[in-house]
Design a protein around this nucleic acid. Structure first.
Length: 276
DNA sequence: CCCGGCGCCTGAGGGC
DNA sequence: TGCCCTCAGGCGCCGG
């Protein structure tokens, strides 16, 4: 499931190959994924002939900046991922394909069809809910401890849910939330209001450390994530908590990783060193 | 306003 | 073998 490191990997890949190429054609077999403009015919008209200028990320959103003041926003949701290169026409999970001026393709593969795509005027991007209603990016230089603590100390609920709320902080999903809290030594269900300053410091450091590590490993392919060239990431080999239920905590503290389901999501943690 | 729960989707995996 | 159930979880939406 693409979270910040997976999205960042795709964005870096695409940034290397897309700029200066043009869109020759576009094909789609699941038009529902296109949220804006209204019809696929309009979408097609808006992108054909446009040139790729830049590729960016905001939270889990991929922003592909095109010529003539257009930006493609892509959210990969659970199983979506962008692919660049020669696309296998037999691949039934590919639902959107751009044919590029160099003869290659840019495609969106998505088993579960949750991904969404939209076009926005570049200078109106900030008016989009997807952009304006999300919190700061945890890897941004301006995301300081002061800012982190300031944002979180106002929030209610438990820490793991807070970390996963995009309107508070943008980019963290279930895998990294579990890993961050394992690293920080904080129980996933600890109430935000009960978290002390030193604990906030540990969480802050863990956010930076774990997300950077995820980026370095080119993402987490525990399910079906691939980079823009179809290669797996490596972060799944470094999980300490996520999907480690029943295993010994790698801190060797005698804890056995426990799993608790709440509101559809699994929390994984070590009951020994992650205290409430 | 906030919180919980459901719907969107489909493949994998377990039980029988 | 094959059917059916559950699970995976990002996020929009709805209702209490």
């Amino acid at each position: 499931m693409p979270e910040l490191p997976e999205v960042q990997t795709i964005v870096s890949d695409l940034k290397k190959v897309l700029p200066k190429l043009k869109i020759r054609d576009v094909w789609c077999d699941f038009k529902k994924m296109i949220k804006q403009p209204e019809s696929f015919a309009q979408f097609k008209k808006m992108v054909i002939g446009k040139k790729f200028l830049d590729v960016k990320r905001k939270g889990k959103n991929i922003l592909i900046n095109l010529s003539e003041n257009k930006t493609l926003l892509i959210h990969q949701k659970m199983t979506g991922h962008m692919l660049y290169g020669k696309i296998d026409p037999q691949d039934r999970f590919i639902h959107l394909v751009f044919t590029l001026s160099n003869g290659k393709h840019l495609a969106l593969s998505d088993i579960r069809k949750f991904a969404k795509v939209l076009i926005c005027e570049t200078d109106r991007l900030d008016t989009l809910k997807d952009i304006k209603d999300i919190g700061p990016d945890p890897l941004d230089k301006t995301f300081t401890f002061k800012k982190f603590k300031e944002i979180f100390s106002k929030k209610k609920g438990v820490i793991k849910n807070g970390l996963m709320k995009q309107e508070i902080i943008a980019g963290i999903g279930n895998i990294y939330a579990n890993e961050i809290l394992w690293e920080a030594g904080i129980h996933p269900f600890k109430k935000i209001q009960k978290i002390k300053k030193e604990e906030f410091e540990k969480i802050y450091k863990a956010i930076k450390k774990i997300l950077k590590q995820g980026v370095r490993m080119r993402g987490d392919s525990v399910v079906d994530y691939r980079d823009a060239f179809g290669k797996k990431g490596r972060y799944q080999n470094f999980h300490k908590a996520y999907q480690k239920e029943g295993e010994k905590c790698s801190k060797n503290d005698g804890g056995i990783i426990k799993r608790i389901k709440e509101t559809g999501r699994s929390a994984f943690f070590c009951p020994k060193h992650q205290k409430l």
